[in-house]
Design a protein around this nucleic acid. Sequence first.
DNA 1: TCAAAAGTGTTCTGTTTACACCCATGG
DNA 2: CCATGGGTGTAAACAGAACACTTTTGA
Lengths: 230, 230
Amino acid sequence: MALNYYKKEDKVLLAVDCIIFGFDKKNLKLLLVKRNFEPEKGNWSLIGGFLKKDENLDEAAARVLQTLTGLNNIYMEQLYAYSMVDRDPAERTISVAYFALIDIESHQFEGVQLDTAGWFDLKKAPPLIFDHGMMVEKAVSRLRRRALTKPIGFELLPEKFTMRQLQALYESILDKKLDKRNFVNKFNSLDVLVKLDEKDMTVARKGAYLYQFDKDKYDRKVEEGFSFKL
Amino acid sequence: MALNYYKKEDKVLLAVDCIIFGFDKKNLKLLLVKRNFEPEKGNWSLIGGFLKKDENLDEAAARVLQTLTGLNNIYMEQLYAYSMVDRDPAERTISVAYFALIDIESHQFEGVQLDTAGWFDLKKAPPLIFDHGMMVEKAVSRLRRRALTKPIGFELLPEKFTMRQLQALYESILDKKLDKRNFVNKFNSLDVLVKLDEKDMTVARKGAYLYQFDKDKYDRKVEEGFSFKL
DNA sequence: TCAAAAGTGTTCTGTTTACACCCATGG
DNA sequence: CCATGGGTGTAAACAGAACACTTTTGA
């Protein structure tokens, strides 16, 4: 703009692609869309878009998510920049991947038609265009690390949830079965949960206690982090 | 190129900036240069350069390192993309930061004049231009994580080194004193070191055993990772 | 009355931390 | 002969893993 010191340097297109993880109280899922423009029109893809001159990457990622799903104020985190020269056959494009976490049930979409988008089980996702498959892999391992390092349920669970739903979330992120007694003990020792008097009677005949996160304690733990073995 | 599907999208300059960590058998250091072009000419900066059309970011980072220091075949890892709209006052530039690890003594520089570049103690580094300070902070915390998660000495130490030098490396990365007995026990239990019959007689009257990494075991551990409490 | 899922504590094992003395050598 | 830094093991505390039975209630 102002001064043009870098006049002779190459410019490129910068995209953002979003790996959107959702949880429906049972399973961890991935939001994919059918791409409606060339190249690769009609194939499954992450949602994405291009960085504009007047916004930073975090803003671009939020805008892309908002435009395509109607959601805003969603937890997002920058993942990695993908830059293989031929990653997009149409034109040289570098893509910065972001991942987002949302609770599927409390966010119904305004912006997405069901025939062009869908939630997929991680293990049953279709092949993706370009290098989007690599992005998803990296996002999964980042999410796994997050789960052992910072609290994460807040973004993926409804306001009130049962201990077993929280455990199911961890089990699907880590892709392994956990012992319920150890899980309860360990999670309680983190001291971020409030046990309510209320029970959710839909999940079992006996019912199951509902919990909430204590937002202050939770946010403090997000700052500090922890290290958690499960 | 070929098809121009994205014709109307904004293009930007993409830079890479390199955080170069070095170790001189005693302390962890940071390589900085005095910038020799505008803007911010004469101020301390990370080394950097622009992505070219025909290379990916890893290649650009390696080229920048090679051009400015003469070094190649150096461990580098992508860190984060920095994209604040006004981060570079001259022109809209997104920068992807990389960090590199090198053993200072076995890599003497061909490309860098001493008056325009220097190794700085992490705590005594001068203020840096733009957002380079943030980059360094993030690199330090990434390096800290690496040290607890994958073996790292290979890149930062000479071929043969003493247990105490290895410990000094960890102490300067983690910025805390470690107990030497516990350190030896823990590191040996990783099973990546070979103890040589040779001693380094320069470090103490008694001399100190030299060690080497077992490259195969080391590389296997880099793949697997580990979790290490120090 | 029984099937289904929830809730709950203890023991054992392995890991981490804390800690102090002797050794070899060069000056 | 002594000052310097290197080398080595054990005990106590803590954290993680394994494990089984009782409760509630809707059908």
